[in-house]
Simulated scan of single mutants.
Amino acid sequence: MKVNLLLISMMVVVLFSCKEKKEAVKTEVSQPALADTVAAAAAPEEVKTDTAVIKEPESIKTEEPETEAAASSSHFAFDKFPSKNYTFVKKAKLDFSSDEGAYNFRTRIQEAYASGSPDFASYYITVTFGCGASCIMGMMMDVRDGKIYGLPLGEETSCLFAEDRAIFDLNSRLFIASICKESPEDKSVYYHAFVWNEDKKVFEKVEKKDIK
């Protein structure tokens, strides 16, 4: 009888000790798991907060000061070289035989002539196009007879540092081919300027004193 009681007591002790070990293991494992879960859940909230405070810098627009040459380009003495009054009614058919080089640019000339109206020296529709780095060339077409003439543009009147090019007026025969500088830092400018001689059908060079 005493033996049975002793065995029962020993079994009870063993059972309790096993239970305590299981609970201790369960507690130790569950605590880190809980901590990992909380940290993982908190992570997106932390990223969201960081993203919310980031702001893109606002773009600041600055206006470039107008250069002296550019500002003076509209102050040429066009009225010193007036062209005759002319009431534009219709365009004559283009005459490509009037200029031996015009046919090489026939598409540009035809498009400009068809869509344009006189914009130089009362009778002429102009068209300009590139001919290389820092170079433009152009033609003008007489709406009265369709004859084509070359503008005083190209390599001879081009410059590396051009402030402006091809400046003209509907009611004037003055044509400013280019406003040039010797270097980007240079404040002084020089001009390639011409006057259209309607009687001779040629451009004649004029000096700076005549155009200002």
Rank of each mutant, 00 (worst) to 15 (best):
V3E: 12
V3C: 03
V3Q: 08
L5I: 08
L5R: 13
L5K: 14
L5G: 14
L6T: 15
I8L: 07
S9I: 12
V12P: 00
V12N: 09
V13H: 07
V14N: 08
F16A: 14
C18E: 10
K19E: 13
E20A: 14
K21T: 13
E23H: 04
E23N: 11
S30N: 12
Q31C: 04
A33R: 10
L34M: 12
D36E: 15
T37P: 02
V38K: 05
A39R: 09
A40W: 11
A40V: 10
A41E: 13
P44G: 02
E46K: 06
T49C: 09
D50R: 15
T51P: 00
T51C: 08
P57D: 02
I60M: 08
E63F: 15
A69C: 07
A70C: 08
A70S: 12
A71N: 06
S73M: 11
H75N: 15
H75A: 11
F76N: 04
K80R: 12
F81R: 00
P82C: 02
S83F: 00
K84W: 09
Y86C: 01
T87K: 14
K93E: 13
D95Y: 00
F96D: 07
A102K: 08
Y103G: 13
Y103N: 13
R106K: 10
T107P: 05
R108V: 15
R108Q: 15
I109M: 03
G116E: 06
P118K: 01
P118V: 06
F120E: 06
F120V: 02
A121E: 07
Y123L: 05
V127H: 06
T128E: 01
C131T: 03
A133G: 10
M141Q: 07
V143M: 00
G146D: 04
G146L: 04
G146Y: 09
K147V: 01
I148K: 07
Y149N: 05
Y149R: 05
Y149C: 03
P152Q: 01
L153C: 02
E155M: 12
E155I: 10
E156C: 04
T157R: 05
S158A: 09
L160A: 11
F161V: 15
F161H: 09
E163Q: 07
E163N: 07
A166N: 07
D169L: 05
L170Y: 02
L170N: 05
F175G: 00
F175H: 01
I179E: 01
I179K: 03
E182T: 09
E182C: 04
K187R: 11
Y190Q: 04
Y190W: 12
Y191A: 00
A193D: 04
F194W: 06
V195M: 00
W196G: 03
W196L: 04
D199I: 12
D199S: 10
K200T: 15
V202D: 08
V202F: 00
V206A: 08
E207S: 09
D210L: 02
I211A: 05
